[in-house]
Amino acid sequence: MARFPLLKALIFPVCLIPLARLGWYGYTDQLGANPIEFVTRSTGTWTLIFLLVTLCVTPLRKISGWQALIKLRRMLGLFAFFYASLHFATYIWLDQFFDLQSIYKDVFKRPFITIGFIGFMMLIPLALTSTNAMIKRLGGKRWRRLHQLVYFIAICAVVHYWWLVKKDITQPAIYAGALAVLLGYRLMAMLPKSGALLSKI
């Protein structure tokens, strides 16, 4: 039980709800007229949500003083990678059907795909180095520096969404706002004075 505390055991199935929902919609024919678009959008949205939720862990822990929250961070981050992988696989398999030439063109010619692709590529080393053994091998300091990539990945994810939208940018703007708050908190924390202030709040 110590290795898989109750909190994690409770949150783990919750994180699978978006996938279960897609499965249920598929089974009951509720994915709409363009199911592949639906699955692509949905897995993309949940990647973004999990990235943002993962970025909430540290501020929440500091603000609430509830240290146990940190135990969720790796799992949430890996769920972000999980949904990103589904999103990527949907694009490669269902959207492009392994048409490498067309994928190649997309990645290099379409800025919104380029940036999404970069974001996903950067997620891979983070997922690979998420184990305790890897943390030990890299050493805490280097590991932390590597995992600060997640800030840039989250920016890539928001920009990826923003550039994809035809006209109505309401949704990407909401995610951009949330990310700005989360990154803003860290910038504030970096300043010596406000850092001390924030950790006291």
Binding site: N34, S102, W163
Partner: peptide, 12 residues
Amino acid sequence: PRWSQAKERRIG
């Protein structure tokens, strides 16, 4: 400018 028009998905 942001996506290819070479292909399309026929709904269904």
